[in-house]
Design a binder for these strands. Structure first.
Lengths: 163, 163
DNA sequence: TCTAAATGTTAGATTCGTCTAAGATTATTA
DNA sequence: TAATAATCTTAGACGAATCTAACATTTAGA
């Protein structure tokens, strides 16, 4: 339990952040520049540069001197994957737990690198479950949770029918 | 969104891991030695040593040459805090999402360093809510989620009474 | 067009967390 | 108790991720 040294991830959290940033910036602005990435991640252009040359060697980004930054197909795939993890966490934190969006975003940014595939899957299903209960804006159990959170009071959690 | 460089944490994830390990080992075996900590975290004794001298300078651990390792009151507090975050995540992953314990533990180890106070609070309440629904081993909504997860089928999520 | 501002790159330093290898100390046991 | 085993410490190296400061290139405006 709690071993240090990940092994599991080919990409470090930092590298995932760069790839994610490039994906988001490209999506928002069409192209990504060194400066944009630096602003997005709050690091200096020189840091971006060294990260990019690393990711370039590893085959995730394309970056010619003084040019725009782009993702390779593998980079695109990685970006989509991190962004998905981020959004799943964000949805859970805001929709289910009712956490403030900015706090939720910060937490999601940090946690998005640590989720196993299994957890991503199940969390996604859980959010779907919370969203898809038909015929209402919010399912009853979630409403009850919010009530419990605010008042500390557990209202009728009646036994389920079968079993 | 997604700024690198935490600023927020006085303790790095690595340092939190060391403190947590010491707390757990002390709790299980009475005393913690360099070697135990190294085994626990899968790092070499020399790494433990340098971490300890760092934590010692910062006032979280007490460590005299060739002696057992101990936590200062501040270290105890920090250990309790991380362990709590770990356990909350573990409970959520296993009990609510139904994730395999070993996977859940691995995820919890990585995520435990990234939870804001607000998220810890709400997640704890959520688990209490799932546990404390009276008169049953598992609340109905959780049962429904598991059904949904296994079959993809949403059973009657009836409208809640009021509102 | 040519110069100033913006942007990008390079070199070199720093911090963190790890390692290996060698030596020091403590514990065990023959 | 003396040799051996286990444990701990030190020294030095390395990779990752960042920074600052100086320099190069591109872009845009006068």
């Amino acid at each position: 339990m709690c071993a240090r040294k990940s092994k599991k991830f080919k990409l470090t959290p930092a590298m995932e952040d760069y790839i994610e940033a490039i994906g988001i910036i490209k999506q928002e602005q069409g192209v990504a520049r060194v400066r944009d990435i630096g602003n997005f991640l709050h690091v200096k252009p020189s840091s971006v540069h060294s990260a990019l040359s690393n990711l370039s060697k590893k085959g995730f980004v394309i970056h010619e001197r003084y040019e725009f930054v782009d993702l390779t197909p593998e980079g695109e795939k990685a970006a989509k994957d991190v962004i998905k993890r981020h959004n799943i966490l964000l949805s859970f934190l805001t929709m289910v737990l009712g956490i403030d969006r900015s706090v939720a975003n910060r937490d999601a940014c940090l946690m998005e690198h640590s989720l196993s595939g299994e957890t991503v899957q199940k969390l996604m299903k859980f959010i779907e479950f919370a969203q898809n209960c038909p015929g209402q804006e919010e399912p009853e159990w979630l409403h009850r949770f919010k009530h419990y959170y605010q008042t500390g009071e557990l209202r009728d959690c009646r036994k389920r029918a079968g079993k």
